[in-house]
Amino acid sequence: MIYWLLRHWIVGPFMTRVFRPWVVGLDNLPEHGGAIIAGNHLSVIDSFLMPLVLDRRVYFLAKSDYFSGTGIKGRLVRWFFLAVGQLPMDRSGGEKSSQSLDAALQKLQEGQLIGIYPEGTRSPDGKLYRGRTGVARMVLDARVPVVPCVMVDTEKIMPIGRRLPRVGRIGMIFGEPIDFSRYYNLEGDRFVLRSITDEIMVTLNRISDQEYVDVYASSVKARVEAERKALAARR
């Protein structure tokens, strides 16, 4: 109820007028049944803009930090993210990350749409980075198709570090669904997991104009942060 109120009467109409999204390939989304929407990730606002053009509800995996704030502000942020369909994703690895993926898997088994960013974090510079294999595990466990989605220019209206978005037009391109049924029952093969992930990233790269870099975005961010700290220490 809260989701539909925000989507259709409060946040949705406002954001649609402000950002005037253009869309290509919307008919590639299935009308029924579970599916994974795998996208590039340019801005924190991606997860709020993409659902505006869909008739179906989509759940996103969002970093768990958004759900762990304290005080009134922390509770409001947590309520808002849950209300608009965000699921907490623990990125620390191990059992906690596995539990986060299980929550998304349950939604897929219920016939829902799950949005996921295979890069694992926002691109630090607008380039497309190597995907993580968590998306492949979900594909094989849930046995659902993958719909590639490319967000366009969202990093221009809300780059990393900016608290409020600028006014500007953004776009979305939905590619044809990818069927990975040929890999079913091979969940334990790490080469299969990498192959599925790489195929998704190649598809995203093909339908976008982003430069592809075969390293993890998190590694690039860590290196940049280390260089920043080293520079600060020398001053």
Rank of each mutant, 00 (worst) to 15 (best):
I2W: 13
V11H: 02
F14N: 11
F14R: 14
M15F: 15
T16K: 15
R17M: 12
V18N: 10
F19I: 08
V23D: 02
V24H: 06
G25K: 05
L26C: 04
D27V: 13
L29E: 02
L29D: 00
H32L: 03
I36A: 01
I37P: 04
A38D: 00
F48W: 08
L49G: 11
L52D: 05
F60G: 10
K63E: 15
K63I: 13
S64R: 15
F67E: 14
S68L: 15
T70N: 13
G71K: 13
I72L: 11
I72K: 04
V77D: 06
V77N: 03
F80A: 01
A83Q: 08
G85C: 05
S92T: 15
G94D: 00
K96L: 13
S98R: 13
S100Y: 04
L101A: 06
L101H: 05
L101P: 04
A103M: 10
K107M: 02
L108W: 00
G111L: 14
Q112V: 08
Y117P: 12
G126F: 00
R130Q: 14
L140Q: 04
L140C: 03
P145F: 14
P148G: 04
V150M: 00
V150C: 06
G168E: 05
G168Y: 08
G168I: 09
G171Q: 01
G171D: 01
I173P: 08
E176S: 05
I178A: 00
D179P: 09
S181F: 07
Y183F: 09
N185I: 11
L186P: 09
T197L: 05
T197H: 02
E199I: 05
M201T: 13
R206H: 03
S208H: 02
E225R: 13
A232T: 02
R235V: 12
